[in-house]
Amino acid sequence: MRRYGPAVLLALTGAAVLRISLFGDLYLRYVQPGLRPYLIASGAVLVLLAAATVLARRGEGEADGEADREADAHGHSHGPAGPRVAWLLTLPALALLLFPPPALGSYSAEREAAQRAAQGVGTFPALPSGDPVELTLAEFGSRAVYDSGRSLTGRTVRLTGFVTHGDDGTWYVTRLQVSCCAADATVTKAEARGADAPPVDTWVTVTGTWHPQGALGSDAAWPPVLDVTDVRRVEQPANPYEKR
């Protein structure tokens, strides 16, 4: 059976990739939606390679059987097909297939310092009419910190994210942004005031008004603050990340 180790590893990895990309939305925990076709193609190729490897090894097995019979006739035999420990390589692929890791959450958010790309202060396009206005955390943060037109003034906004806790009882509505995949995730968040903090990693939709603080573009303006009037627990969205 050891000769089929590479085929088993390829098959498990391919099946895991197909499981998260072809048969559900789990792939959104790791990459952007646009990469789904590439994941499906990669998974299919791995499964096909596994099948091809099995067929090739069967042919080798028949040849090895003849060689072993000849070796026995001459009083010697071949060594083992490979180290048994190599089968341990199947464990990560099996774990990915059966227990896919969750999306990044508060642990990742808290490990990253509040580093923001340099942006110039300026005016932003007008917000849609009607309240509350549905915004991403990134949109809210950009307008709160950099919009010289103060487009958030007097407007009620609605934000969705997971809960992270800070010092002195502060808590934040947080979201991770990705450009390509979870490996390049960065944090965007808003401090929530006026409501009790839900448990860490709880997904919530909060409604409230912007609370100005600090000079535009300054460190004192970050993170932006929302005076919360309503907190509603929600399910984690299929795509937990915001696109950068």
Rank of each mutant, 00 (worst) to 15 (best):
A113Q: 14
Q115E: 13
L159S: 04
Q119K: 12
D167Y: 15
G130H: 11
S129M: 12
R155D: 01
D147E: 02
F140A: 05
V163D: 05
V145R: 02
V157A: 02
S142I: 12
D167L: 15
T164S: 15
L135Y: 04
H165C: 12
V163Y: 11
T160S: 13
D131Q: 03
D131V: 02
T160C: 09
S129L: 13
T164H: 11
L135F: 06
L159D: 04
A118R: 15
R116N: 08
S142K: 07
F162H: 08
G166R: 14
P125E: 09
A114S: 14
G122T: 08
G161F: 00
F140H: 00
V145P: 00
R143K: 02
Q115G: 10
R158W: 08
A117C: 10
T136G: 09
R150Q: 09
T156R: 07
A126T: 03
R158V: 09
F162S: 03
T136H: 09
A144M: 05
A113L: 12
P125L: 04
A144L: 00
T123S: 10
T136L: 06
R150T: 02
T164A: 10
Y146V: 04
T136N: 10
R116E: 11
V133L: 04
S148R: 09
P132F: 06
A126C: 07
E134R: 10
L127M: 03
E134M: 10
A144Q: 02
V163I: 14
A113R: 13
S148A: 08
H165R: 15
D167P: 13
L137R: 00
G122M: 05
S129T: 14
A117R: 15
A144S: 07
D147Y: 00
E139L: 04
R143P: 01
T160K: 11
Y146M: 05
E134A: 14
G169C: 11
D131G: 04
G122A: 12
L127V: 04
A114M: 12
E134D: 15
T160Y: 08
G169E: 07
T164K: 08
V157F: 01
A114Q: 14
R150P: 05
R150F: 03
F124E: 06
S151V: 11
S148T: 04
P132W: 01
G166L: 12
L159Y: 03
V133C: 00
G122V: 07
L159W: 08
Q119W: 06
T123R: 11
F162I: 09
R143L: 01
D167Q: 15
G141M: 05
G161V: 05
H165E: 15
L159N: 06
P125I: 03
E112I: 13
Y146C: 02
V121W: 07
V157E: 05
L127W: 01
R158S: 10
E134Y: 09
D167M: 14
G141E: 06
P132R: 00
S142R: 14
S148Y: 00
T164G: 10
G141K: 00
L137Y: 05
A113W: 13
A117E: 14
F124W: 09
R158D: 06
